[in-house]
Design a protein around this nucleic acid. Structure first.
Length: 805
DNA sequence: AGCACGCCGACT
DNA sequence: GTCGGCGTGCTC
């Protein structure tokens, strides 16, 4: 007897274990751990992952596997094990971990269909169902489920056996194929054929002649039709005659097909770069795992170190994974990798369609590439002989997944680095305190690039106190200094980047008379004003309504839009500097695919004087003519309820400042702020990471935050506030009694966003240094509330949270 | 997650 | 008496 242990596609606590299935005879030779299968589960059919094959089972009523979806395992042994590890680390479900490791295209889609069992019994069907089954024996449940009359009739006919339910598992992503024609005869024969064809077969002649002209090469059917402006009919005739042969060829959607990449070769390394790369190269050489923290100021040439390390890895016949934060945001980065390694690079990022991602993933799976450059999930690339893993901009919070499984790509990278005995390189100009502290302790190996390339100076930074501006009567969003410099750049034909940090301070509406703030009715959070549609929208639940013209509370007309949006800044520039050409980049102007890249290219080509945008322009841009960077409001994220807000502000300001003066022209930075004395603003303006690190470490120590303590956040939500408070209360006290006395349990406390989509949210925070029993205790808590979870109660656990919301 | 099963109140 | 509401428990 051959038994398969299967993890089924039901993300729930009760089903988070293997189920045993009988392997049918005809699958016995090909089934292996790591393949996907379709199995009957209760009345339904589900997709599942085989995680092991065994010879016996305790289970009495075995069902057989219904279908095998993969001929070769889609998860190899390493990845199966990794999935297990991710599940344990994040307290998530096994199925969720597996799905997170694979492209979305491989996730199953489930459809419920209703079948007419026997056409002969059509006349006995309920009257109103007859039209539905007129054409076909099958109908889609989703087409009828909203019509109570149909539902009732179907239930009745199901009972008497006229109809049956079928659960169909469908693939989400398809392989894209196209039809290719090749010619089945020799050139000589073809030439003879052309002269012997009757004159009315002119189109066929053209087709054959095309093949003769093109060396009898195969051609896609669509191409051929387009070129000859021919129809299907002559082609069909030639296929029927056996002269042409048609086959389906799988093609990859190439998101970069319209782009050409200039080939580049290795640059001469500076002395610092050579010193930094040599330990990495020796790890590669000796197949040893080591985590390196490559701390290099902006513009110090980290990327060249990456590229040359990868070259070494490729020489050894190994593969490389490079993580880049939200890669679509940095087309310049893709360019550098494609330029150096050409077609052996796969690119995985969120801007690709499901199908495109699937194609890129398959190139990796089939070893058609040996470098992958991608966002967070690329860390699961199914390479089998990894020689290096690089995480660029290591401090970026997008490396943490904010849904289950809540993993951090850095942790997965180190796990895989140990497995493959290869170096992991974390690169940043502003490393996280966690990483820098580890490097200081010797857990990571610190590599430093302290000098900018070509001896370029760090830009000069001006901090402008906006309170002072207000006092002197300047109510504009531009300080005098920034405005003068803007004019100056405009006159000289140089470019400016204006940065607006909007998060946490988006454009909310407030009454100036009574202080009323327009909030979402479902979530306790202020609504954001969208000028283009004159709407207010909730960023959490999507609720939207007309923007009020009078205060809903006191009916005053002095209701105003607070905060500054990119649109508003653009308008103001239009008024003050009408001759300036502005490119605005925000969610509105970059939502369309490829528009991001287009806007940046236009700016790079000098088609605008000012690039105005939010977070998304802070990273990786490198334009020679940019000599001025302005930060309109530096301190908006400083006041968020987030232990890392100072760190994030420092990182952002440093990152943004690095955009100026990267080439021959010197750069300047203007930072406008209402809290100029804050250390993260002061130290960022002096490009002083070291002092910032020490200052912030003191704060973290005082407040018992990471890296001095680990943290775990439990969030409880439910529509009734009493329930939420009660449960969080119980959980908090359970944690207090079951953890060591050295650990700190905070809570219950209302979450920073106390209500989302009409659900109240409370949380319990645990801070600890060493708590080996923690995961076990958390499992117990989740188990205890098992039956209530999924009803109305929701409990999420985040080990090492980055968002406290 | 679905879905069946089973136990109580409002009806033809 | 039956239809249908949703709490409970199971899926190899």
């Amino acid at each position: 007897m051959m038994i398969a242990k299967v993890i089924v596609d039901v993300p729930a606590m009760q089903t988070d274990r293997p189920f045993d299935y009988l392997v049918p005879e005809h699958y016995q030779d090909i089934i292996k751990p790591g393949v996907r299968v379709i199995v009957p589960f209760g009345p339904r059919n589900l997709q599942g992952f085989v995680i092991a094959i065994e010879a016996k089972t305790e289970v009495k009523k075995l069902k057989p596997i219904q279908k095998l979806l993969d001929v070769e395992p889609i998860l190899n042994e390493e990845l199966l094990q990794l999935g297990q590890w991710v599940t344990e680390q994040t307290l998530s479900y096994q199925i969720s971990s597996f799905q997170a490791m694979l492209p979305a295209a491989l996730k199953a889609k489930y459809e419920k269909e209703i079948i007419l069992v026997n056409r002969e019994e059509f006349s006995t069907l309920s009257q109103n169902l007859k039209p539905l089954f007129q054409e076909s024996d099958r109908i889609n449940w989703t087409d009828v489920e909203d019509e109570p009359d149909f539902v009732r009739a179907i239930q009745k006919d199901l009972k008497i056996g006229l109809l049956e339910v079928d659960y169909v598992v469908k693939a989400k992503g398809k392989k894209k194929t196209h039809r290719v024609l090749s010619i089945n005869i020799s050139k000589d024969e073809a030439e003879r054929l052309v002269s012997s064809l009757p004159s009315q077969a002119g189109r066929q002649k053209e087709v054959i002649e095309y093949f003769i002209l093109n060396d009898m090469q195969e051609v896609s059917r669509i191409d051929l039709k387009e070129r000859l402006r021919a129809t299907d009919s002559p082609i069909k005739t030639l296929i029927d005659k056996g002269i042409l042969v048609e086959k389906n060829v799988e093609i990859y959607r190439d998101p970069y097909s319209h782009r050409e990449f200039k080939r580049t070769s290795s640059l001469q390394l500076t002395e610092e770069q050579t010193n930094a790369i040599s330990p990495i190269l020796s790890s590669i050489e000796s197949n040893q795992h080591q985590t390196y923290l490559l701390y290099g100021v902006t513009g110090s040439g980290k990327t060249e170190v990456y590229l040359q390390s990868i070259e070494e890895v490729l020489k050894k016949g190994q593969q490389a994974i490079v993580l880049v934060p939200e890669i679509s945001l940095t087309p310049q980065m893709v360019e550098r990798f494609k330029g150096r390694f050409g077609s052996s690079v796969a690119v995985l990022h969120s801007g690709l369609s499901v199908g495109e991602k699937y194609d890129e993933w398959r190139k990796i799976y089939r070893k058609e590439v040996n470098v992958v450059v991608g966002a967070r999930s690329a860390i699961f690339a199914p390479f089998e002989n990894i020689g290096i893993i690089i995480i660029d901009e290591e401090h970026e919070s997008s490396y943490k997944q904010e849904e289950n499984p809540r993993y951090h790509a850095r942790d997965v990278a180190i796990y895989r680095g140990q497995y493959h005995r290869c170096p992991v390189v974390l690169g940043s100009a502003t490393p996280t305190l966690e990483s820098f502290a580890r490097a200081k302790k010797g857990v990571y190996h610190l590599l430093t690039l302290s000098k900018r390339m070509h001896e370029r100076e760090m830009p000069k930074v001006d901090i402008i106190d906006m309170r002072e501006e207000l006092r002197t009567g300047n109510r504009s969003m531009f300080s005098e200094v920034l405005f003068e410099k803007l004019q100056d750049r405009l006159a000289k034909g140089e470019q400016t980047v204006l940065f607006l940090n909007r998060r946490g301070y988006s454009t909310f509406i407030m009454c100036r008379d009574c202080g009323f703030v327009v909030n979402c009715t479902e979530c306790d959070i202020s609504l954001t004003y969208h000028r283009s549609q004159n709407l207010v929208k909730c960023h959490y639940c999507g609720h939207e309504e007309r923007a009020p013209s009078t205060c809903p509370s006191c009916h005053s007309e002095h209701i105003r839009f607070f905060g500054t949006g990119t649109q508003k800044v653009e308008e103001e520039i239009g008024k003050l500097l009408p001759e300036a050409r502005v490119i605005r980049m925000d969610v509105d102007t970059t939502s369309k695919k490829g528009s991001h890249e287009k806007l940046l290219t236009a700016f790079g080509e000098g088609k605008a004087d000012i690039l105005l945008g939010t977070q998304m322009i802070a990273k990786g841009l490198d334009f020679p003519k940019v000599t001025l960077v302005g930060v309109l409001t530096a301190d908006t994220m400083l006041h968020l309820p987030d232990l890392r807000s100072s760190e994030k502000t420092f990182q952002l300001l440093t990152q943004v400042s690095g955009r100026a003066g990267r080439h021959d022209l010197p750069g300047e930075v203007v930072i406008q702020t209402y809290t100029p004395e804050h250390y993260s603003i002061q130290l960022a303006s002096g490009h002083n990471y070291n002092d910032f690190y020490h200052q912030e470490m003191i704060m973290r120590k005082v407040h018992q935050y990471p890296p001095f303590y680990f943290m775990t956040l439990i969030t409880v939500s439910h529509p009734e506030i009493t329930k939420v408070v009660g449960v969080t209360e119980k959980i908090s006290s359970y944690m207090r009694t079951h953890l060591s006395s050295k650990s700190i349990v905070l809570g219950p406390a209302a979450s920073p966003i106390p209500r989302i989509k009409n659900r109240y949210r409370y949380q319990c925070m645990i801070k600890y240094k060493d708590e080996p029993r923690l995961k076990h205790v958390l499992r117990e808590v989740l188990d205890h509330y098992q039956r209530e979870i999924g009803q109305d109660l929701q409990i999420t656990v985040d080990m090492n949270p980055y968002m406290m919301m």
